[in-house]
Design a protein around this nucleic acid. Structure first.
Lengths: 263, 263
DNA sequence: AATTGTGAATACTTTCACAGCG
DNA sequence: CGCTGTGAAAGTATTCACAATT
């Protein structure tokens, strides 16, 4: 467990950092999920030197109130009557989101999806660098993809150690995912982005985020189906009394669901 | 059976969908997002004829209480002292999630990611069938990927009409995404899964779900960074009372974040 | 006058805990 | 008994609305 972080310096340890990080406390989870969105939205108005919450919120696809609330958690630097300083805000968000430095990422599973991910520009542009591709297939090991050699699965641990990666991406078939995750964790990885259709079980302290492409579609299909069948057939349940149905009026809000997140 | 319905009564027309859906009540959004997970979890215990909430919940990565609550919204059919009937539950969930029928899906943007998506087994296994690949690149148009011909972007509308697709997947570069979305919507698509790093603006009534791979990583990085910086520098905030709260016990629960969803 | 930051109000989700059924 | 279904409590998240600030 002494796999110490080799990447310590990304420039904010030393006292030269102007804005000290905010109170060191947890932002609400929902806010964290939106910070990257704001950061990206900022990039689309590099020209202006200030933005109001209204403008930036629109670009990010959230309400102005929500944007202000989120930023307020950062102890932000808006100026009443004016807005937020774009440059300043960008730095602040970058710090918070951690994209100030380059995070080395190891990607396991170089199938169709893995290959696509290896070349995904969105990773690099946000401060992530794929430093290792791993696959067990003898046919792939040794070949190059996007300028990186594919390493054999047996070499996973040394690869992680050598690159100092703390983030791993699992893009293997479902049945291999858990074992890969176990090894990543053992090798020192503490955050995993899981594309396999499995729930990964990991030790306390390791983060997992799951992206299930099929699931996303399924959620869309649910709503799609719902609307194509306006006449509700009554529930064929046994005794289940329809009792507890407060269900006020149908929420007339925008039915646009934005964001992979909540909602 | 690939016999697709021939009528293209899309737009608003009620497609004649076979499976009768139950009660017209809206499920909570968070529940909807989990139904596909349960369905998938069920597949991993086909042997047993019944499951308890505890077992299924574990397989799905949620708490037993949450599973029961979720299923209760379906007016579910559990048997006290025994559990849920696996076969029955599978049918019920399938109905609700809409995977009882095959949804035709059009995929726009056949780059690395699009190509991976086209061959993604998770789509097919969940009742989605990619019926069209679209790209503007002359080099790609006419070529085959996974048994499908790539159609030119100019043919988007007729393709949607012909296939009756109501779901579209946008896997284009960010700057093309909005225009593609506009055209999909105009052609009759009402649900869009967006992989481009842009917030899509769509008319009322059209659903969009966004999957931003870079963003997912950024969220992991946030937590990662946070933990590598144990010494919180106090912030010099005006008015912000550090007091906020002793925060009694640190949330000792699993710090595993499961699911692309909520949280 | 415009726009932030934020308490208070509302809405949504998860968890608890237990009554009741098989 | 064991396990479901569910009210009620607790916890989060979003929206409102307004006083404060430049």
């Amino acid at each position: 467990m002494s796999a110490e972080s080799l990447h310590e310096d990304r420039g904010d340890g030393p006292p030269s950092r102007p804005p000290t990080r905010a109170g060191g406390k947890d932002l609400p989870g929902a806010t964290v999920a939106r910070l990257p969105v704001y950061l990206r939205a900022l990039d689309h108005l590099g020209a202006a030197t200030t933005v109001s919450s209204g403008v930036l919120a629109e670009a990010a696809g959230v309400s102005p109130a929500q944007l202000r609330k989120d930023l307020s958690h950062l102890g932000s630097y808006g100026t009443p009557g004016v807005g937020y300083d774009v440059a300043h805000l960008r730095v602040r968000l970058g710090q918070e989101v951690g994209s100030a430095s380059e995070w080395p990422v190891v990607l396991v599973g170089v199938g169709n999806l893995g290959r696509a991910l290896a070349g995904y520009s969105g990773f690099h542009s946000r401060g992530f660098r794929v430093v290792g591709l791993v696959d067990p297939s003898p046919a792939l090991v040794g070949t190059h993809v996007r300028g990186l050699v594919i390493t054999d699965l047996t070499e996973l641990e040394p690869l992680v150690a050598r690159t100092g990666a703390v983030i791993g991406v699992v893009a293997t078939p479902a049945d291999a995912a858990q074992s890969v995750a176990d090894r990543l964790v053992a090798a020192g990885v503490r955050s995993i982005l899981n594309f396999a259709a499995t729930v990964l079980v990991v030790p306390d302290g390791v983060q997992v985020r799951k992206v299930d492409l099929g699931q996303e579609l399924a959620i869309l299909a649910y709503h799609e189906q719902r609307r194509s069948e306006p006449a509700p057939l009554d529930r064929t349940g046994p005794g289940a009394p329809a009792g507890a149905g407060p269900t006020a009026a149908s929420p007339r809000r925008t039915s646009v669901l934005v964001g992979g997140e909540g909602r």
